[in-house]
Write a protein that binds this DNA or RNA. Structure first.
Lengths: 122, 122
DNA sequence: ATTGTCCTCAACTCATTGGTTGAATACAAC
DNA sequence: GTTGTATTCAACCAATGAGTTGAGGACAAT
C-alpha cells in the first residue's frame, strides 16, 4: 500500500466533513488562528483544534508558530492529487463512453443496412 | 445544512477508501458485476457489496437489473461537484497568493524609496 | 512572579464504519 | 420443482471518528 494511496485516503477523508470544508473555505480567504476558525462554529474550541489537526495530517494545511498563536495556512498544492485522481478516471470513463457511442452509431447505421435480413432467425 | 453539502460529504467519504477507489478505477474501464469487482480483492464478497452500496449512496455509481446480475455503472457527472469544490477554493487561495505577492513586491520597492524616512518614529 | 490568552493533550462517550458469517431472495437452468 | 448462481440482508465485532470536559504548556503583559 503506497504512501500516495494513504495520502489520498487522508485528503479525501479530511474533506468529507462539512466543518473541515468550511475551515478550508475560510482559509482560502486568509490565514487564521484556531480561535478565529472556531468562532463561527457552535462546537468547542478543542473540536476545531482537532479538525485542524486532521487537515494538517492530510497535508492540506500547515501551522506556523508565531508567539502563542499557530496561524493556519492553506497548502494549495496538496489539493492537486485529489483532482488529478478524480479527473483521471472521469476522463477514462468519458473516453470509453465516446467509443461506445461511436460504436452504437455505427451499429445503428448497420441496422438500416443489414439488420432486417439478420432478423429472419425466428 | 443543504442537500448538496450532504452529497459532498458522501462523495468525498466514498473516495477516502482505497478499495472503493480501486472499484471506481475498475469501473472506468467497463461496467462490472459485484462478483467481478470482488475478484481481485482478498475480502469477502459481501464486503465488496457493501462498498458498492456506499458508492451508490454517494451517487457515484448506479446499478441496473439484468436477471440476477446487477451490473454496476460509473456515474461520471457525479464526480464534478467534488472537483468544482476543490478547484473553487484552490483558485481563491491562488489569487490571494498572487495579490499578496504583488503587494510584497510593491512594499519592497517602497522600502528602497520611502521607508528610511518613515522609520524615524523612534 | 502572577495572570490571562491561546492552544494542545488526555480520557471518556457515542455513533459510524469496515470487516466477518450465516441466512434469505431472485432468477436461470435443468 | 430442485439446484446453482449472484446478490443482498441481518447480526455481530473491533476499530475509528467526532464530540465532550478537564488539565496542562507556552507565551505576553502587568
Amino acid at each position: 500500500m503506497g504512501d500516495s494511496t494513504q495520502q489520498l485516503d487522508r485528503a479525501f477523508a479530511a474533506l468529507a466533513d462539512p466543518t473541515r470544508r468550511g475551515i478550508v473555505a475560510r482559509l482560502s480567504v486568509s490565514d487564521a488562528t484556531v480561535g478565529e476558525l472556531a468562532e463561527p462554529y457552535d462546537v468547542s474550541f478543542q473540536a476545531i483544534s482537532k479538525h485542524v489537526k486532521v487537515l494538517e495530517e492530510a497535508g492540506l494545511v500547515t501551522r506556523s508558530k508565531d508567539a502563542q498563536r499557530r496561524p493556519v495556512h492553506l497548502n494549495r498544492e496538496a489539493f492537486d492529487p485529489m483532482t488529478e485522481w478524480i479527473e483521471r478516471y472521469r476522463r477514462e470513463a468519458e473516453e470509453r463512453y465516446r467509443r461506445l457511442d461511436a460504436l452504437l452509431a455505427r451499429t445503428a447505421q448497420d441496422d438500416g443496412d443489414r439488420r432486417p435480413a439478420e432478423e429472419q432467425e425466428s
